[in-house]
Design a binder for these strands. Structure first.
Lengths: 359, 359
DNA sequence: CCCGCCTCGGAATGCGATTTCCGGACCTGA
DNA sequence: TCAGGTCCGGAAATCGCATTCCGAGGCGGG
């Protein structure tokens, strides 16, 4: 399954400037031009089961090419009762985290012959709710939510209800990573990855940590913090309150947090763990601006292992999350019309690099 | 390949009564539940000009909420004769260049109440053509092409014709950056920026250059090369053939090119100009892996000034392109129903950073 | 008090497709 | 030659919604 339209597959496209102007050619136009009925034209153009005499096939195809006909997808959707779109909701496109996921999703979607429509929720729960509401109107085959949404009980319930109504009507819903709602979920092991990371870092000889995290309501951030803390806990290591700083979940936030840490006084802190790579990179840059050499004066670790992690100096220690594959899985899950809500776990993997040298 | 044949042939069955539950509520259902006619319900729900008695308004609204009604966008599109979607075609989502543009586009689109559907062409002209064809079927208000497409005369004409037919039918087309086709265009001054960059670098004392470029057919790359060459030409500086290497238009390509340069022998080359930042970053990393310190042993400059440019060490000298704004402009252009094809120039701006210290 | 105007609800029509249903042509075997 | 089956084309019904058109009341002015 895939491909877009069979019309283009059959005849070499003819170039002929449409004189008509204004209106797109409709199926009726094609039928008339070919001297057949609409039904026949439809049968030819959508590759229906029924056969049409070869002569008519040719005439319809020719007419369609001549008129530059493109089937009206909305009309098809209405007539067929189903569309071939999938909807993707992300928190932001600029963020490599989401664009990697989006890459996977679109790849899988196009392989399945689906068109993907994308919306950006900007980490606002209300916005996300509104988006889902609108998207539902398109009657997509699936809605994939990739947002690291802030957990607000009120809008969360509203969202759940909205999604439920959608699924009830035959759509499929896939959540990525952190939603604890009863839908298909691609679950990223944030807690486990962070915990492993903590262990590995202690193994390298680190003992005194600081942490850069996001808003408490952001589940992804929370899980990673908890995992990291618990990992340290295994060695009876704790992080003092003053070495935990909250910031925006992006590069700027990371920089701001690092400056704040410097202001408060690093006081022998050996390593800063930022809950995602973009923040970690922000931290490194801010440290350098403050005259500290990352990896040397103070180690830094992140989470996600986005592409740029290996472009910074020193290369960033992180936890690999196969984001592209997460997107692929999400789409597969969406397409498998499995009615029970399944959870596909995606494991994470610590990668130690130059930003956390052995002590 | 994969014709859509499968997709359309797959569900021959008529409207399915979903095992689990009900259809989506339709306007008729709402009207019935509210005890009014469909017309009245429609008038209430889409905010028509005509007034409806308050009592009926309330009843319709209540019924709609009760039934979890969402208007069927396709049906609306058909009835109204116009949709509220905009289509965006990019070469790849992972690339920060495109995701920045996409960010601008979606921002502007959502501000205008449009839903954006995105497709990825993977730098394949045929794929792009096919995508445009499919997208046209959605009858979007606008199609924005942001791909740095490879210039292949054949498919380019086909694309032009396709776009022309679309515009003829009332849609608006916006090209970003490098298409020399008669449509609205947001034009990035690649040539001028590169030329300025060359001048600035010579000003810093550089005399011996190497260049990392993409496939000749990629206009963006070509323009930047030409600009850079001409800029050097002003000072009677030339680049030997063996110091110009072609590579893929991405990070991997940059690394590969750098390795190739090292293999050929740098021979006193002072600075490597890569035609975009992701390649430049790849170049820096590869140099470092080869034991060369970027900015010290050999300077590096890029183009685009994407976010990560300031996260690498040393910070990358580049040419700023306001990508997000490019996206915004594109959308504005798309929405302004100006029938003459306009060109909105976007200027670029050299930023010198640590990767090109004064010699 | 009557008549026209204004307001508002409902039936009908149309949008661009798909699909069902029916009927005519052709084929085949008896 | 005729009955029965197969093949294929066309008329028409839908799909979910917007909108036009028409008619029924309510209202105020003459």
């Amino acid at each position: 399954m895939c491909g877009m339209d069979d019309a283009s597959a059959a005849p070499p496209r003819r170039r002929q400037k449409t004189v008509s102007g204004e209106r797109q050619a409709t199926l009726r136009d094609v039928a008339r031009a070919a001297g057949v009925s609409q039904a026949t034209a439809s049968r030819v153009l959508n590759g229906s089961i029924r056969n049409v005499r070869q002569e008519n096939v040719d005439r319809v195809l020719a007419a369609a090419a001549e008129l530059d006909y493109t089937p009206h997808l909305s009309a098809q959707a209405i007539a067929r009762g189903s569309t071939n779109t999938a909807a993707l909701v992300v928190s932001g496109v600029d963020d490599p985290y989401f664009s990697s996921i989006a890459g996977g999703v679109t790849e899988a979607a196009e392989a399945a012959g689906l068109i993907v429509t994308m919306a950006v929720a900007d980490r606002s729960p209300e916005r996300e709710l509104q988006i889902v509401r609108t998207l539902r109107g398109m009657r997509p085959r699936a809605i994939i939510l990739a947002g690291s949404r802030i957990d607000d009980p009120g809008t969360r319930d509203a969202l759940a209800q909205e999604l439920d109504a959608y699924r009830e009507a035959g759509g499929s819903v896939v959540l990525i990573s952190q939603h604890d709602l009863p839908f298909h979920t691609v679950s990223i092991d944030n807690y486990g990855g962070a915990r492993q990371l903590a262990r590995a870092l202690v193994g390298l000889g680190y003992r005194r940590f600081a942490m850069v995290r996001a808003h408490v309501g952001l589940k992804t951030s929370r899980d990673r913090c908890d995992g990291f803390m618990d990992g340290l806990g295994e060695f009876n290591i704790d992080i003092e309150e003053r070495f935990v700083v909250k910031a925006e979940f992006n590069r700027r936030g990371g920089s701001a947090a690092a400056r704040e840490l410097v202001r408060r006084g690093l006081d022998g802190t050996e390593l800063v763990f930022a809950v995602n790579d973009v923040m970690a990179i922000g931290v490194m840059t801010a440290f350098r601006d403050a005259g500290l050499v990352p990896g040397q004066d103070v180690a830094v670790a992140g989470f996600d292992d986005i592409g740029p992690a290996v472009d910074v100096v020193p290369e960033l220690t992180s936890v690999t999350v196969p984001l592209r594959r997460v997107g692929l899985h999400a789409m597969e899950l969406a397409l498998s019309d499995d009615h029970a809500s399944r959870i596909v776990p995606v494991s994470t993997n610590v990668v130690l690099r130059g930003s956390t040298p052995r002590r």
